[in-house]
Every structure is written in structure tokens, then in C-alpha cells.
Design a protein around this nucleic acid. Structure first.
Length: 564
RNA sequence: UGGGGGAUCGUCUAGCGGUAGGACGCCAGCCUUUGGAGCUGGCUACCUAGGUUCGAUUCCUAGUCCCCCAGCCA
């Protein structure tokens, strides 16, 4: 199971204090309670890391995986499988503690009848619209429903008949009898059960009434002996109701609800509703589109669970609304991949180079370091020959002062190979486009040779034309042109999608070993970034997703002077 | 407007009456056969106004601004 480094936060402090005080017998039991109606995203990862992390920190602590499946109309077993897969991938283990709120339906129903017997719940027969108007507003108190004083017998009878399926959807609802004048709207007789003639993916047609969140959640926590029930800020108002339900259930367990601020990331789509919209309108390729902050998307993009966990640990846990910059997430994946990824050379936009003084038909194998950060990763051989491809961006016919790379008459080192000098430029007579460079090489400067020490301003990557494998590279940019928080609510947010979020580069030339790259394998393409082989790869025709670029001092300078 | 929360560098976050710290980012330099990595140095913050105190980001008072709540969603 993933380790946690124990960065302090206010929730950890509460748990620590509770343990020290012997509250809950010193035990720590948390839960991660997703509704199986969507796929997990990085925001869920924050909650997962928090809940599982808290449990790991405590001796004997445990974190349950509980599916909060109380709404049959939106839930699907495919999501249950997906969520389990993603939590495991992130590096957490719930052991045998996987539960479903739907498994508690029978007990929840009994609790509800108990509430009715105590006169703490009643069947209301107002329509949804009527109920809304009876509820009052933020500033005016609500009014009691005319059905509020039904007798216990009548309520019991009606509730049982609701369960038996005698009424259509919406005909009645079971409500808690609390206080229609409460300044907290959640306490104005909240709905506990609604009629829904729908097939539930787990209980089938056994039920036609389903408990709501405010009833099922606290009770599920109590049933499971949850000690700390951690949720997001919007449920803060529900806490009095949560406590009311637990107290009325007379459960010996009194879980404590604690709220924290959900994760927001600038220029990322994080809401379930919007993610669904993107997928359904086919504005992205699917839930695993690498532009999405879903766990599946991040995985396909090449993110590691370790990087995501490190990110979640470092963003902290607090109560103030916050928007974390995407650069922070990128920092953690770079940091992780820098240490562990194999270096390779790949040319995205090839420019042909012929080494005039290199013997025709000859070739040699040069030693390349697999990972300068990890000597144990060893070396590999890369083939060198007379005709090469270099990155088109590494050549400029009329270079500005700051440009260190190849230009007419200039020298650069070819990584792991020789120093070459550009002697001429060939262009397409029709389009004027540069199609080929002629260079000469200095045989004395082969990497590792005594004369190789000669300094040149730059080292560039390359591949041998005869040996290279053709591949496709997918470059990703922000899916959004702006932070969603800045988009006026009356506007269609999808008009802010970045048309350049995906750039497919075909005709890339990569070093031979990459022809057989397996989906999910990660590499650093030297000088370019980290790349991950996509499932669309075929033998001899690899496809790579750019996880994140390397930091690039030149592109920053280039942009900085673009206005001049 | 009722209720519930929250305000600390550009962005996250620490602090619990005693020099406001860390990370990302940015800037400068060193180093470098990745303009990567690494190293060094620098940058910028306590919402406002009063009060208590020898001393306030912290305590008190009054404001200001931001977020959430009127689903038979979670």
C-alpha cells in the first residue's frame, strides 16, 4: 500500500488529538464513499489519499471503500469496477472492507420505521413544487405541510404501501420532522425516502423506495463504525442533520463529520457534470482522454500514481477555497519521471541531414546513457550513419543572438555522437521550404574519445534515417482557454475549449528500440519531454502521448522576444 | 437579506502572543555532451479599521470581500 509522508493538516491534527484522548477507543476508521455514477478524477484522488492516508497513519487504522449507491437512476456497475480499478492503481487497498449503501437498504428501512414510530418522521403527499414553496426561502421560514400531523399509524401504513409499490413516483415522500422554521434549510423537514420505480443495479426490483444521501450516509457511517467521516465543504450545512440522524438512530457509534475544501485545478475540467458533457458530446475521445484530469486520463497521459500521491500530499488540506495551478501537478510528474524514466531520442519534426564526409553505406553503434539520474540503468547502443534526422526546430537559417543550435556555418554536438558543422542548406525550389542540410563531421570528436572535450554551444538529438522507426506523437495543451471559474454562468462553457488542446504529429522518427514500445511504457525523449506509449500503438508503429514537456529555457526566451 | 464557512507571497500551504517558514512559479548566477537535472542567491504576503498587550497573523470589536445552502442529486 502507498505510504504517506504525514504532512500535517487540520484533519490529521483532529484525528491525532482524538487518538490521544482515546476517543472511539483510539481507533481510526475512515471511508471513501464514491457514488458509482462517474469515473474518478484528481479531486477524488485528494480525498482518497486523505482518507486512506489517515487510516494508514493510525495503528490498526482502516479505510473502507463504500459505494454510495442510493440513486438507481444514475448508477452503473461499470462505474463500480472502474472506481475499484482506479483506487487500486493509485496505490490503495481496502482489504475486505468494500461496502455498498444498497446492502443496508433493509436496515435503513427499519431505522425509518423507527423514526416514524417515534413521531420523528412522516409521509408527506405534497408535490415537489408544493414542497418547494412550503420550504420558504433563505430569509423567510417555511410552513408546515398539511400532512405533517398524520398519525403514526397512518404514516406507517402509507410508508409500507410506498414500499409495496402502491404509489407512483413522486406521490409521497418520507420526511424527517424537524423544524420548518429553521434558519438552516437542511433542517426544514428534509426528505428521507422517495419513490422511484427503477431497477437498481444491485438490488434489482426489490425496492421502489430509496433513501436519500442525508439519511443513508450518516447511517452507513454509523453501521460501519466510521470514526471520522470526511467530506467536502458543501456538506458543512448538513452536519446538524447528519448528527440528528445518527442520534435518532440510537447507534452506539457516533462518527464525526469533518469538512475540507475540494480540489480545484486551474484550466482543468473537474466537475462530474462537465466531464460527462465532454464525453457525451464527443468533445474528447472518452473518459480516458489524456486531456482530462480523470485518473484514467492521467494514466493514459503517462502520469504515475506516485506523482499524483505526492501532489495530493503537497497541496495540503484546509477549509479555504483554493485553485491549484496546473504547474504544480506538472512539477510532481517531472520530478518522478526525471528519476525513473529511460532516455531515448526521438525527432518530432524531422529535418534530413547528410554528413558529407561520413562514408557512404557505413554505420556504427554509439553508447548512450539510459538515465543520467540512475547509473544502474546502464547504457544502450544507438546506430549512427551518414543520413540522419534532426529536429526541425533545432535549425535556423538566420538565428537570433540567443539561439545556440544549428545554423549555416555553425557547429553543434549530436548527442552521444560527433560534432557536426552545417555547410549548406537545400530547399524545395517550388516552395522554398528547407528540405535538407549538408554537414561535415569531425571524426575526432566522437563521444568518449580523447578529443571529444571540445566545447560547442549546443547538443541536439537525432536519429539515423535508415534505422529509425516512424511513429505518431500526440501533444497536449490545456483543454480550456481560461479558468472555468471566470466563465459567466449564462455562457456556454464549451466555447472556451482550446482548439489546440490536441496536436497530432505524425511522421515522427524515433530510435529503433521504440518500435516495440508497449502501451503504458514511459520514456524521456531527450530535450523534449516525457512520453508514454499509447494503447493505439502497433508493433513498428508506436504512438506516444506527451505527458509533459521538459522545462525549456529557450522557448521562454523565444516567447519573451517574440514581440520585438 | 437568514444560516453555515473562509480570508497569509502570483499560486498552494505552515503558524496557535515573541524575528512570518516551506513548496510551486519567477529572476540572476554556477554547472552541464539534454537550453533537462542539480547547485547558489534573490523576489513578493498576514483583507480593513479600531482596541487589549511590553509585544497581535494569532485575542476582542466593528466592517469589507469570497464561497456554500431554497433536489424527491450526492
Amino acid at each position: 500500500m502507498a505510504e504517506s509522508n504525514g504532512a500535517s493538516n487540520f484533519i490529521r491534527d483532529i484525528v491525532l488529538a482524538d487518538r490521544a484522548a482515546g476517543k472511539h477507543g483510539g481507533r481510526v476508521v475512515t471511508r471513501f464513499p464514491p457514488e458509482p455514477n462517474g469515473h474518478l478524477h484528481i479531486g477524488h484522488a485528494k480525498s482518497i489519499c486523505l482518507n486512506f492516508g489517515l487510516a494508514q497513519d493510525a495503528p490498526g487504522g482502516i479505510c473502507h471503500l463504500r459505494f454510495d449507491d442510493t440513486n438507481p437512476t444514475t448508477e452503473d456497475p461499470a462505474y463500480v469496477r472502474s472506481i475499484q480499478e482506479d483506487v487500486r492503481w493509485l496505490g490503495f487497498d481496502w482489504g475486505d472492507k468494500m461496502f455498498f449503501a444498497s446492502d443496508y437498504f433493509e436496515r435503513l428501512y427499519s431505522f425509518a420505521e423507527g423514526l416514524i414510530r417515534k413521531g420523528k418522521a412522516y409521509v408527506d403527499s405534497l408535490t415537489a413544487d408544493e414542497m418547494r414553496s412550503y420550504r420558504g426561502t433563505l430569509t423567510e421560514p417555511g410552513k408546515n405541510s398539511p400532512y405533517r400531523n398524520r398519525s403514526v399509524e397512518e404514516n406507517l401504513d402509507l410508508f409500507r404501501r410506498m414500499k409495496a409499490g402502491e404509489f407512483p413516483d413522486g406521490a409521497h415522500v418520507l420526511r424527517a420532522k424537524i423544524d420548518m422554521a429553521s434558519p438552516n434549510i437542511n433542517l426544514r423537514d428534509p426528505a428521507l425516502y422517495r419513490i422511484r420505480h427503477a431497477t437498481h443495479y444491485r438490488t434489482g426490483s426489490a425496492w421502489c423506495i430509496y433513501p436519500g444521501y442525508d439519511f443513508a450516509h450518516p447511517l452507513s457511517d454509523a453501521i460501519e463504525g466510521i470514526t471520522h467521516s470526511i467530506c467536502t465543504l458543501e456538506f458543512e450545512d448538513h452536519r446538524p442533520l447528519y448528527d440528528w440522524v445518527v442520534a435518532e438512530s440510537e447507534s452506539p457509534h457516533r462518527p464525526q463529520q469533518i469538512e475540507f475544501a475540494r480540489l480545484n485545478i486551474g484550466q482543468a475540467v473537474m466537475s462530474k457534470r462537465k466531464l460527462l458533457e465532454l464525453v457525451e458530446k464527443k468533445l474528447v475521445t472518452g473518459w480516458d482522454d489524456p486531456r482530462l484530469p480523470t485518473l484514467k486520463g492521467l494514466r493514459r497521459r503517462g502520469y504515475t500514481p506516485e506523482a499524483i500521491r505526492a501532489f495530493c500530499e503537497h497541496i495540503g488540506v484546509a477549509k479555504r477555497d483554493a485553485v491549484v495551478e496546473m504547474q504544480l501537478l506538472e512539477h510532481f510528474i517531472r520530478e518522478d519521471l526525471n528519476k525513473r524514466s529511460q532516455r531515448v531520442m526521438g525527432v518530432l519534426k524531422p529535418l534530413k541531414v547528410v554528413i558529407d564526409n561520413y562514408p557512404e553505406g557505413a554505420s556504427e553503434e554509439l553508447d548512450a546513457v539510459n538515465n543520467p539520474e540512475d547509473p544502474s540503468a546502464g547504457t544502450r547502443k544507438v546506430p549512427f550513419a551518414r543520413t540522419l534526422y534532426i529536429e526541425h526546430d533545432d535549425f535556423l537559417e538566420d538565428p537570433p543572438k540567443q539561439f545556440f543550435r544549428l545554423a549555416p556555418g555553425r557547429e553543434v554536438r549530436l548527442r552521444y555522437a560527433y560534432i557536426v558543422k552545417c555547410v549548406s542548406v537545400a530547399r524545395d525550389p517550388r516552395t522554398g521550404r528547407i528540405i535538407e542540410l549538408r554537414c561535415t563531421y569531425d571524426p575526432e570528436t566522437r563521444s568518449g574519445a580523447p578529443q571529444a572535450q571540445r566545447k560547442v554551444k549546443a547538443t541536439i538529438h537525432w536519429v539515423s534515417a535508415a534505422h529509425a522507426v516512424k511513429g505518431e506523437v500526440r501533444l497536449y495543451n490545456s483543454l480550456l482557454k481560461t479558468d472555468l471559474a471566470k466563465v459567466p454562468p449564462d455562457q456556454d462553457w464549451t466555447t472556451y475549449l482550446n482548439p489546440q488542446s490536441l496536436e497530432v504529429v505524425s511522421g515522427c522518427q524515433v530510435e529503433p528500440s521504440l518500435g516495440e514500445a508497449r502501451p503504458g511504457e514511459r520514456f524521456q525523449f531527450e530535450r523534449l519531454g516525457y512520453f508514454c506509449a499509447d494503447p493505439d500503438s502497433r508493433p513498428g508503429a508506436p504512438v506516444f502521448n506527451r505527458t509533459v514537456s521538459l522545462k525549456d529555457a529557450w522557448s521562454r526566451m523565444d516567447k519573451g522576444s517574440a514581440g520585438k
